[in-house]
C-alpha cells in the first residue's frame, strides 16, 4: 500500500459519505441520479463477492463492507426513504445501454474465464462509466448543488489517485493490470470536464452552472 492508493481509498470513502450525509441532512436527493447509484451498488456487489471466498486483510474487508453498505443505503434513501424528492424526470439515462455492452465486453476481454473473474472485470468496466447518468443529469439541468460538486470531485479524484498508484506500482513492483489501468483511465477522463468546472467555479465560491 502506497500513499496514492491510501489517498485514493480515503477520497472514495469521503465521496460516499458526503453523498450519504447530503441526502440525510437535507432530507432530499434532488439533483442526484438514482441510476448512477444503482450502477455503483452493482459495481460493489459484483466486485466484492470475494468477501465470501478470500480474506485479504482487515482493512480490505472493512472498506469493502463499508462501500457496499453505504451504496445500498444511498439507493434505499433515493428510491424509498426520500423517494418524493427524487428528480426522476431528469434522470433519464438508459442503464441497459451501459450494462449490456459491458457484460458482453467482460465476457470477451478478461484475465481468466471464471465466474468471479468475469464479475470482477464487469465491475471494473461498469465503474468506469457508472457516473454517466449523474453527469447526464447535471448537463440536462445545467447545474449542480455545491455539495453535489464536492461529491463528484472526490469521486473523480479517487480513480485519478489510483492511476498514480498504478504508475508507482509499475516502477516499484513491476506490477500492472491492463484491464484496471485502461478502465481507470477512461473513468478519470470522463471527469476531466467536470474537474475544470470545479476548479474554475466551485473553488472560487460559485455554484456549478453550465453555460446555456
Amino acid at each position: 500500500m502506497n500513499l496514492f492508493r491510501l489517498a485514493g481509498d480515503v477520497s472514495h470513502l469521503l465521496a460516499i459519505i458526503i453523498l450519504l450525509l447530503k441526502i440525510w441532512r437535507t432530507r432530499s436527493c434532488a439533483g442526484i441520479s438514482g441510476k448512477s447509484q444503482i450502477l455503483f451498488a452493482l459495481v460493489f456487489t459484483t466486485r466484492y463477492l470475494d468477501l465470501l471466498t478470500t480474506f485479504i486483510s482487515f482493512y480490505n474487508t472493512t472498506m469493502k463492507v463499508i462501500y457496499i453498505g453505504c451504496s445500498y443505503a444511498t439507493v434505499w434513501m433515493i428510491y424509498a426513504k426520500f423517494k418524493a424528492t427524487y428528480d426522476s424526470n431528469h434522470d433519464t439515462f438508459r442503464m441497459e445501454f451501459l450494462v449490456i455492452p459491458i457484460a458482453a465486453l467482460s465476457l470477451l476481454v478478461n484475465h481468466d474465464f471464471a465466474p468471479l473473474e468475469i464479475l470482477w472485470t464487469f465491475s471494473i468496466y461498469l465503474e468506469s462509466v457508472a457516473i454517466l447518468p449523474q453527469l447526464f443529469m447535471v448537463s440536462k439541468t445545467g447545474e449542480a448543488e455545491t455539495i453535489t460538486s464536492h461529491y463528484l470531485f472526490a469521486l473523480g479524484l479517487y480513480r485519478a489517485l489510483y492511476l498514480m498508484n498504478w504508475i508507482w506500482r509499475f516502477f516499484a513492483e513491476g506490477f500492472f493490470d491492463l484491464i484496471a489501468i485502461v478502465a481507470g483511465l477512461v473513468q478519470t477522463i470522463l471527469y476531466c470536464d467536470f474537474f475544470y468546472l470545479y476548479i474554475t467555479k466551485v473553488l472560487k465560491g460559485k455554484k456549478l452552472s453550465l453555460p446555456a
Binding site: 478470500t54 485479504i56 480490505n60 472498506m63 484475465h111 481468466d112 473473474e117 489510483y162 498508484n165
Partner: peptide, 10 residues
C-alpha cells in the same frame, strides 16, 4: 499465475 491476480485493491 492467474491465481496471483491482485485483488487487494478496492
Amino acid at each position: 499465475e492467474l491465481d496471483d491476480l491482485d485483488k487487494d485493491e478496492l
